[in-house]
Amino acid sequence: MSFGTFIKNIRKHMELKQAEVAEQTGIEASYLSKIEKDRVAPPSEEVLIKLAAALYHDPNEIIYKAGKIPPDIRELILNDEELFFYLQQKLEEKQKGE
């Protein structure tokens, strides 16, 4: 599922209008429409966090679905050497399997 479809599905499930979500997010409704139709790349992390709040949804999931790494997860990886090397090992295993 594309990012835009993901956002649209959440908005419709919450029974919110594009104009409502756009206003709460601080963006134009036309921009939200473009996001939902995948006509533009996912917005900045700042907008994603506001979008998550407007949709009453987990910001980390919204950021992740946008193809980005949530800041708290990025911070965790940067501050946990064991976790970093574990992830690096997983990446190497995946690359060998391809």
Rank of each mutant, 00 (worst) to 15 (best):
R11H: 04
N79F: 02
Q95A: 07
E45H: 02
K12H: 07
E46F: 08
A52F: 06
L91R: 13
L78R: 12
D80M: 04
I27D: 08
I77W: 06
T5V: 04
K94Y: 14
M1Y: 06
E81L: 03
E92V: 07
H57L: 06
K12Q: 14
G26I: 09
D72V: 11
E23A: 13
Y56M: 10
N79R: 13
Y56N: 15
T25L: 06
K8E: 07
Q88C: 04
D58C: 05
E36C: 04
L91H: 03
L87M: 15
D58V: 05
I77E: 05
E15V: 04
Y64N: 07
E28M: 08
F6Q: 00
H13Y: 14
M1T: 09
F85Y: 15
V21N: 07
T5E: 08
P70F: 06
E61C: 01
H57R: 13
F3E: 00
K17C: 01
E23R: 10
Q88S: 09
K12F: 05
Q89W: 11
Y86F: 15
Y64F: 14
L76M: 15
V47F: 02
K94I: 09
I69N: 04
E93F: 10
K50W: 02
L32G: 08
P43W: 07
A22H: 02
Q88G: 02
N9S: 12
Q89S: 14
Q88Y: 14
F84T: 06
E36G: 01
E81F: 01
Y31H: 13
